[in-house]
């Protein structure tokens, strides 16, 4: 049975080797110019090196979570759209129900003011 996972093992090893090689190569070959901007905060608006326990603005999470939800829906729609012809009307109906639930959720969050920043 372990035999079945041999491919996985090879994949892991290759992945590790390639990743390590890239890092090492970058370390050796890349030109290095120190610049305060490079060490500055990332675009999320937080300082990069600070105590991890700082108060976050909850709106940031709200937007992120909503984004992820709809992002995942797209991931659902994709294979469905590709295979729609083979799946037939049942799949269409199922997706319609799914979409309807999604719309209710979306409408809820809109009405609740989840999309307003201020």
């Amino acid at each position: 049975m372990l035999h079945d996972y041999f491919g996985v093992l090879v994949f892991l090893i290759v992945g590790a080797v390639v990743g390590a090689a890239l890092l090492v190569l970058g370390f050796i070959l890349a030109p290095r110019h120190a610049d305060p901007v490079k060490g500055a905060a990332y675009e999320c608006g937080f300082e990069a090196f600070e105590d991890a326990r700082i108060p976050f603005d909850v709106r940031y999470y709200l937007v992120a979570i909503l984004f992820i939800i709809f992002d995942l829906e797209i991931a659902f729609f994709f294979p469905w759209a590709v295979a729609l012809r083979e799946l037939g009307p049942a799949a269409y109906a199922a997706m319609a129900v799914f979409f309807a639930v999604l719309v209710v959720g979306f409408a809820y969050e809109w009405r609740r003011g989840g999309l307003e920043w201020e």
Partner: peptide, 12 residues
């Protein structure tokens, strides 16, 4: 449950 949510959406 959807209906409960719909109430909230349609008639705040």
């Amino acid at each position: 449950s959807i209906l409960v949510l719909l109430f909230e959406v349609l008639a705040r």
